[in-house]
Every structure is written in structure tokens, then in C-alpha cells.
Design a protein around this nucleic acid. Sequence first.
DNA 1: CGATCTGATAATATCGATTACAATAAAATA
DNA 2: TATTTTATTGTAATCGATATTATCAGATCG
Lengths: 324, 324
Amino acid sequence: MSVATVSRVLNGSKLVNEKTRNRVLESIKELNYTPNAAAKTLRSKRTMTIGVVVSDIEVSYYAEIIKGIENMANSLHYNVIICDAQNQKEKEAGFIFLLQNRTVDGMIFVTPSLSNQELIALVEEGYNVAVVGRLIEHADIPCIHTDNVKIARDVVNHLIEQGHERIAFLSGYADAIDSYERLEGYMKALRDAGLPFVPNLIENGDFNEDGGHLALLRLFDKKVPFTAVFAANDEMALGVYRACRELSVSIPEQLAVVGVDNIRITKYVTPRLSTIEQPKYTMGALLAEKLIDRMKDDVYRDQRVFCVESKLLVRESSLFNRKQ
Amino acid sequence: MSVATVSRVLNGSKLVNEKTRNRVLESIKELNYTPNAAAKTLRSKRTMTIGVVVSDIEVSYYAEIIKGIENMANSLHYNVIICDAQNQKEKEAGFIFLLQNRTVDGMIFVTPSLSNQELIALVEEGYNVAVVGRLIEHADIPCIHTDNVKIARDVVNHLIEQGHERIAFLSGYADAIDSYERLEGYMKALRDAGLPFVPNLIENGDFNEDGGHLALLRLFDKKVPFTAVFAANDEMALGVYRACRELSVSIPEQLAVVGVDNIRITKYVTPRLSTIEQPKYTMGALLAEKLIDRMKDDVYRDQRVFCVESKLLVRESSLFNRKQ
DNA sequence: CGATCTGATAATATCGATTACAATAAAATA
DNA sequence: TATTTTATTGTAATCGATATTATCAGATCG
């Protein structure tokens, strides 16, 4: 029994006699042998690991995506290393370095803060990269994103149907692609309905609760009338709730509120928050699958860009029809 | 410039001439060189990685602990691999196998489902193991836990002060150590206050919302009067809220509710949930520090078991004094 | 019966970093 | 100048698994 034979047995080579194979398997059990991953990796250049960089795992939207990534990867015999930047941009660079260092087989980015340029640079260095939440053109990067324009239109149309005519929009970071696209959808829906676009009804936030809170306070300060708020995500909508509580504004009677993401808390606040449900888990799983796919075989490339469907969930926070 | 010299430079050996060192450093930059982690590990037998097995990362209580682990580990130049069993017991065994396979330098367990026996077995196999949330006697395992008896007493005493005399207790899994110890504290507090212990006021749940919901419904079915509920954790308390909504029982007027853990949602529900705050982040950080400590140096061993302080946060869900 | 082929196994080079030891050059000393 | 020290650098073994090549029975064939 040489090391080679053992290796053959472990890798299911058929060039081993049945008797020898059994003898090897027995010894393996007896000695409680586990192959050394480092040695394997050193030789084969494969870690069977993919690294995931996420800007903040506490954002339940991201957490769900990562769950999808993880389960799919595991079922394909890959392991996942999660790098949580804890909302600190500067940490992300460190994680990328770490992942390069540990030579993961691929990386998935679940973060808005890294630029397309940076991702493309990684690809050019030879890494397998995939990204959630945006569309990168002309690069060999699997992408999964949602139709943000449609999301915004669905929300605004719903509010218009409820009789609202002055609808505020709380954007996220002004430079985030999500913010931009949602603003676009917001404007389109207004235009389609023949409603005026009032720039004063737009406020920027930061996708966090505090940002939503401040943004709404600024909005009230302006004394521009409005009866509904479309928050770029649920966290900001929670900030709106807080502001309304402080100012004794009742939701939905005085102000209708709609968010995006369908995070867990939306079902626990009073009134329950209307929001947009996205197939987060599926997004993660699908992306992981596609990434692993192209790591295996770099000749055949099927679809690279995926756009998933999202759905409006109407709850009490936007159910108060002004038309009647 | 030989490989040895380069290695010496990288490892900060002082056996290198200043000029050579600079020359090496320059080349490293120029070639964009990164040392191969697999080779390093193969040689040194150290991965500079610790594995964390968590029963369910979505439980924000655990998530916070893990954040503490991660930050501390990172600051000590260790990486962390998080293994989320997603509440599936059978997954945990697989993860342990994975961690052995990847030869992490140490493992931290943030899960109630693995038995002490199993953990001790790992230690006997030579792994460095640490555990959150329980106390393991006579084993070389750093532990961090809270004084569950005190937690329960604090809660029950608070309810008694509010004038409650018939206080129900919704336990978690009957066999979980937390359940058992909290029950003990509950009984002690009643006894100390000269109140009777009514076995019918105890119901078992599963530490999840649904379990709390069902447990409370069962409690109501019994027709045993009670004016307050001590839920073994916040998730179960949320289940209580749901049951009360369905049955139009008002909190806190008809029923006072207190939970444990101070998860985020507690501040968003109406009324806000009284609960017990535990220094989750610190627990994680401290445990990681201790584990890494003993991985370095297996001669000196300082304190192995830590018990952290927790604190009652009184909010509206238990603020309705019956004495007046 | 010798030559060729085949199936099974052993030997060995390799991956990249570390490290004990050897080698060399430069400096210090006799 | 010869010799010893010291400082610096190179050589080669090593970690454990894998892939390629070599080896060696038996089987098959002319």
C-alpha cells in the first residue's frame, strides 16, 4: 500500500483492485484518517471554497441572500467564507486581500460600496467574481439584480391608486445604483399618471433607520404637503415610523408609508409596513450556482445576467384610500 | 535572492541585510506577490483560522455574539469561518467534520444542541474548543455563560413589584440548560416573595416565536388565571404578542410580558417589550480572546470560566402597576 | 516459449513556504 | 598574512496529497 494507492482510493479512481481498496478503506477508518486540506489545496490549486464579502450581515436582506449562497454552495460541495465588513467600507479591501491570500476559488460580492471598476480589476487578476444587486456590462461577472424601476413604479402606482397625489421619495445614498434607479421609476410612474414631479419631495438618506428618520424630519421642515412616503428600503421606513411617532402623525391615515425589502421587522411594527418582497434566498442560491458553474468549466458560458421578479406586499401602512 | 531570504524578510527575521531586505520588498511589490496560505499551513500546521458553529445565525442574539468573536479574532490576526447550521441539528455534525478537515486552529460553539460530551470528545481528539452559553466542568474548555438564575429572579421580582401574583413561565426546550436554570430562578423568586408555585402556569416552548404563540394559547386554554408572562426569550415573547392580538388581550393592562435577550424587534413592537440585556458582543469577544490565548501557549492557563452580568430593561410591556 | 500487452501498484516529482544547516564573504583578530 | 568570528545568504529537507512515470506480475498471442 503506497500513498498513491491511498490517494487513488480516496479519489475514486477505478485503477485499484477491489481487495486493495477495501484494505485501504479499513485502515482509513482504523486510523481515523482525514486528508489534509492544505496539502490538497497546495497541489490542486483548488480550495473548494468561495468567499463572500457583505457590507453588513445584520441587514436581514443581505443575510437571506447569503443563506441562499451558502446552501447552494454546500450542496455543490463548496464551503463558504463570509466576510462581514460591518458597514465599514475600509474593511472590505482588507477582506479582499484576505480572500486572495487564502486563494478562494471564487468571490461573491454582496455590497454596494465596491465599484464596478474594482470588481473588474479582480477579474483581470484572474479571480472568479460574481455580484448581487447590480448589473455590470462587458465583464465576465455573473450578476443578479432586480428591476428597480419596476419596483418603484409598483409602489408609486399603488399609492396613486390609494388616492395619493403628493408622494415623497426617501432615497438611499445618492450615488447608489438602487437609489438612482428607484428614483427613475418613481418619476416615471408620476409622469405616467399625469402627476407633477416635485423636487422638494425628494430627500436623501443612507439606507439606515437614522437616515430615514432625519430625512423625514427635513421633509416636514420644508412645509411642502405630502400624504405618502416611498422609502428606498425598509430600514428607512422604520425611521419614518419613528419620526411620525415623535410628531404624532398617524400612519396610514395622515401618512401612507411603503418600504422595500420585506425585512422581518416590517410584520411586527404597527401598522404593518407595506413593502416589496424580493426573492432574496433564490438570488443568492442562483448566483452561487452560476459562479461555481463557470469555475468548473471555463469554455461553456450560459446566461450571465439575471433579473429577478419582485412583488408588492400591501399591508396596513398604505391602506387608507383617500379617494372615497 | 533565494527563497529562504524572501521567507526571512516576510517573517521579519533580523538575519537579513537591510539592503537585501529592501530589494526583496521592492520585488514583492513589483510582482504583486502574495504568500500561498495553503503552503504556509502545510508547513506550519497553523491556519490562523477559528471555526464558529452556530445553531442559527438569524437569531440576533447569536449574531451579536459572533460579531464579537469575529472582531476580536480579526484584531488578533485570526480569521473566522462561520458555520450556520440554520437550525438543523444534523448539519452541525457535518460542520464539525468540515472544520476538522480544514484543520482550523480552534472552534467556538454557539449552539445549545451539541452535548457537553461531544465537545469534550473534540478536546480529547486534540482540538481547541470553546463554548458560549454554558458551563462545562472538568474540561479544558473556555466557557462564557450568564447567571440564568439571576436573570429569572430579576424578571420575576420586577413583575412582583408591579403587583403581579400569578406569573406564568414559558420555558424553552425542556432539556435546554437555559430553560432549566431560568425555571429555577423563577421558582426561587416566587418562594422568596412568599408566593405559591403553580405548576399549571409553566408551559414549554422551543425558543421560537411559534412555540411561544402555541404555549400561550395552551396556557389560556387551561383557564388558570395569570396576569403576567415571563418568556424564556424574546422570540417566544413575540409569540405571546401574537396570541394576545388574536385574543384581544391588551398588553400590559391585561397581561404583562417580559422576555430575555433584547433582540432588535423588542424596541419596534407595541408596546415595547421589557427584556433582559446581555453583553452579547462582549461575550463573543472575550471568548475568542481566551481561546486564542490558549492556542498560543498551552502552559499558562488563566481563568477558564466567565460569568457575565445581565441587566433588566423595563419597557412598556410590563409597566402597569396593579397595586394602585 | 519468448514477445507484447494489461492491470495493479510503487516510486517519485511537484505544489510553495519554512527552517536547520551549510556555505560564503566580510570583518576582526592573532 | 593567516586564522577566527560574524554576518549574510544559499541549499535542501520537509509538510501531505496528487499526478505522472516506472515497475512487475500475469495474461495473451504468434
